[in-house]
Amino acid sequence: MQIIQEALAGTLESSDLFVRVSPSEGPLELILNSEVQHQFGDQIRKVAQETFAKLGVSEGATVIIEDKGALDCVIEARLEAALLRAAGDKSVEWETLS
């Protein structure tokens, strides 16, 4: 999947996360800022990498996450939404995503 535009998802509220995806040149870059970085930083990165792999995003994007202590399922959902928006995909079959 190719990232063609800037996109946002989520909020900065507690237990949520704010995701900003922008097109870039070069490898995929993930920048994580989390209130629970010390305890869950690695886990959040793992969820993010799995989501990138699932959607086939491996380059050409910068992904910035401002996490406010979201659960894994929320992180995955917000990331998916942001990446699909950033890919300009209007024909998403949301039901098939799991």
Binding site: E6, L8, T11, L12, E13, S14, F18, R20, S22, K68
Partner: peptide, 21 residues
């Protein structure tokens, strides 16, 4: 309170809709 975080989130979406990243 949490109002500040919602306020800034809302402004960010408003800006995004106008093309400001």
């Amino acid at each position: 309170s949490a109002i500040s975080l919602r306020l800034v989130s809302e402004v960010t979406y408003l800006a995004h809709s106008q093309g400001y990243q």
